[in-house]
């Protein structure tokens, strides 16, 4: 049918955030100190469904701290983190620990910079991908295996590697496996801390391509930390620039990169251009 084919065109396009939809995540005045030192301070932003927000800044600018606080790995000192749960918007800081952990293994996913931190190294690739399925109650072995095989394919790992341990994988493969393991349950919000960090440049490019494909295909909402502006250029709809724990500039990626307002952002952009 005509309508069907029209719709399929739209389906391939990434859903664009609309002003009328509620934010998936609303962050207000988030602050985290390490003693006297500032981790991040007074960070506020909204993330809309289907949006990719890049967080950039030099080393020590508070990117990981912010992400850890948002994902509930660390308790912030002040601020609100409001997530649009199935039962409506909730401040994750006011949730009980069981509730937060449940979110972490259903609606949320967290891709660590170091794949070893996000994988079970003693468990096969299939088991790694299957864990989240089993955590939410999957009890049919053949189904779990089929889904795991499918996901390995989606991250370009040959199905015959399904019973191999991640320790037998290259760094790039481990990172792709970590991504598969995180996305298998269709999370609504994905946190990524330097997902391409520590990989060879050619491996990075391939991983980025793959990530971009998955983000588009699944319409993922993503918070991605990086200090690589090429990564945000390719993946992020919007960009947030941090310095000394504070957000110094945020806006649409192209706007910020092409016409940076803050002196620090200008420096960041020009230093990349020189490379």
């Amino acid at each position: 049918m005509m309508e069907g084919s029209d719709l399929s065109i739209f389906a391939k396009k990434k859903p664009q955030p609309m002003a009328s939809t509620a934010p998936l995540l609303r962050v207000e005045g988030l602050t985290k100190r390490y003693g006297a030192r500032i981790g991040c301070a007074d960070v506020s932003f909204d993330l809309y469904p289907g949006e990719v927000l890049g967080i950039v800044g030099e080393s020590g600018s508070g990117k990981s701290t912010l992400l850890s606080c948002l994902a509930g790995h660390m308790a912030p000192d002040a601020g609100r983190v409001i997530f649009d749960t199935a039962e409506g918007p909730r401040d994750t800081r006011e949730m009980s620990e069981p509730e937060r952990r449940r979110l972490a293994r259903t609606d949320w996913a967290y891709v660590h910079q170091n794949a070893r931190d996000g994988l079970r190294m003693g468990v096969s690739a299939g088991g790694n991908v299957g864990e989240r399925l089993m955590a939410v109650g999957a009890r049919h072995y053949a189904d779990i295996r089929t889904t795991a095989t499918d996901w390995l394919g989606r991250v370009e790992i040959a199905p015959e590697r399904i019973d191999d341990r991640p320790s037998a994988f290259s760094g790039g493969m481990q990172q792709r496996l970590q991504i598969a393991r995180n996305l298998v349950t269709g999370p609504r919000l994905v946190f990524m801390d330097e997902p391409t960090g520590g990989l060879d440049v050619s491996v990075q490019a391939r991983l980025l391509d793959l990530l971009r494909g998955l983000v588009r295909e699944m319409g993922l909402s993503v918070l991605i930390v990086t200090h690589d502006l090429a990564v945000v250029r390719l993946l992020a709809d919007r960009l947030m620039v941090m310095k000394g724990g504070r957000v110094v500039e945020q806006g649409l990626t192209d706007q910020v990169l092409d016409d940076p307002q803050h002196a620090y952002t200008q420096l960041l952009v020009s230093s990349v251009l020189q490379v």
Partner: peptide
């Protein structure tokens, strides 16, 4: 949170 127990059986 007992999903891990089934990971063992899966393996």
């Amino acid at each position: 949170e007992y999903g891990l127990m089934h990971v063992k059986l899966y393996e």
